[in-house]
C-alpha cells in the first residue's frame, strides 16, 4: 500500500507564503541548520524529508518560533511570512503562532474535554463574541478535521480518552480552530497505525484547499502521497527542493538519490 502513486496535484499556486534566506540554527555548540534558503508556497503541501537528526524538525519549529521556548537555541538569518520578517523584534510570537499553527509528533490533547481542547485557541485569541460563536467554531473545526461524526455526541468527554488517530485529528482540529494560514505538522503520523495514518493523510490533502501545509515525515512514501513540493535535508543542509514528482523520480543531487533509494538514512 505504500507504493500508491502520489495524489495528483491540482491547484499548485505560485504565491510564496513563507520564505527563508540564510537561515542558521545553533543548539548550544551544535550547528543544527546551515544556511537554508527556501520558499514555501501557499495552498500547497510541502514535505521535509531526510534522515534522523538532519534538522528538518528544527527548521520546522523555526517557522512559528517554537524554538524560542528552548533556551540554548539561537536562530539567525531571515524568515518572512507574507513578506514580513517573523524574527523582527516588533513581532509578537504569540500572534505569529496564531497564524502559523502546529501539530506535533505525538498527539498531545490537553487533559480537558474535547470541546475545551478545540475551544482553547479561539478563547485565548478572543475569536468568539459569544457561546454560540464558539460552538460554531468548535463544530466547524471538528468537521474540518473529519472527526465531528465520531465525537459530536461526547464533546464533554476528556480528549485523552480518544484513540491515537482520533487524538491526532483532535489536535489538528485544535490547530485549525484558530484559523491559521500555515499549518506545520511534525511527523503527525509517526505514532499512528496505518488506518489512522490514511485518515490523517486524506485530511491533509483536504486542508490544502485553505492552508499552506508543511509536513515533516520520515516516510518517503507519505511524502510522495501527500505533498506537491518536497525538500530534502541532510546534516543540517537543505540539499534539494523541488516538485515532489521530480525529487522522487529524477533527483538532481546524489545524496538525495542515495536517500530515496535507501542507501543513507
Amino acid at each position: 500500500m505504500y507504493d500508491t502513486p502520489k495524489l495528483e496535484s491540482e491547484t499548485v499556486t505560485d504565491e510564496v507564503k513563507i520564505s527563508a534566506r540564510g537561515c542558521q540554527v545553533h543548539y548550544g555548540d551544535n550547528h543544527a541548520i546551515k544556511d537554508v534558503d527556501i520558499d514555501i508556497q501557499d495552498k500547497t503541501v510541502t514535505s521535509f524529508i531526510g534522515p534522523s537528526g538532519c534538522g528538518k524538525s528544527t527548521f520546522l519549529r523555526c517557522l512559528n518560533r517554537m524554538n524560542d521556548t528552548i533556551d540554548i537555541c539561537r536562530v539567525q538569518g531571515n524568515i518572512t511570512l507574507d513578506g514580513q520578517d517573523i524574527y523582527d523584534p516588533r513581532v509578537d510570537p504569540v500572534q505569529l503562532r496564531a497564524r502559523v499553527g502546529m501539530v506535533f509528533q505525538k498527539p498531545n490533547p490537553f487533559p480537558k474535554s474535547i470541546y475545551d481542547n478545540v475551544a482553547y485557541g479561539p478563547k485565548i485569541h478572543g475569536m468568539a463574541r459569544n457561546k454560540a460563536d464558539l460552538d460554531g467554531i468548535v463544530e466547524k473545526s471538528l468537521r474540518r478535521a473529519a472527526i465531528w461524526d465520531e465525537v459530536k455526541d461526547r464533546l464533554g468527554a476528556p480528549g485523552t480518552g480518544l484513540s491515537g488517530g482520533q487524538q491526532q485529528r483532535l489536535c489538528i482540529a485544535r490547530a485549525v480552530a484558530t484559523e491559521p494560514e500555515v499549518l506545520l505538522m511534525d511527523e503527525p503520523c509517526s505514532a499512528l497505525d496505518p488506518i489512522a495514518t490514511a485518515q490523517v493523510e486524506e485530511l491533509i490533502d483536504e486542508l490544502r484547499q485553505d492552508y499552506s501545509v508543511v509536513i515533516v515525515t520520515h516516510s518517503m512514501q507519505q511524502a510522495a502521497r501527500v505533498s506537491q513540493k518536497t525538500a530534502f535535508f541532510h546534516l543540517g543542509n537543505l540539499v534539494e527542493y523541488g516538485d515532489t514528482g521530480q525529487i522522487f523520480t529524477n533527483p538532481a543531487d546524489t545524496r538525495t538519490e542515495s536517500y530515496i533509494t535507501g542507501r543513507i538514512g
Partner: peptide, 27 residues
C-alpha cells in the same frame, strides 16, 4: 467527507502591529 466551508477571512493586523487584545494578553 467534510462540508466545512472556507473560513471567512479574519481581519488580521500585520505581524508588526499588535492588536489591543494581544497587548492586553502580554500585559
Amino acid at each position: 467527507m467534510t462540508d466545512a466551508t472556507v473560513p471567512p477571512a479574519v481581519a488580521r493586523p500585520g505581524l508588526f502591529e499588535g492588536d489591543a487584545r494581544t497587548r492586553k494578553r502580554n500585559a
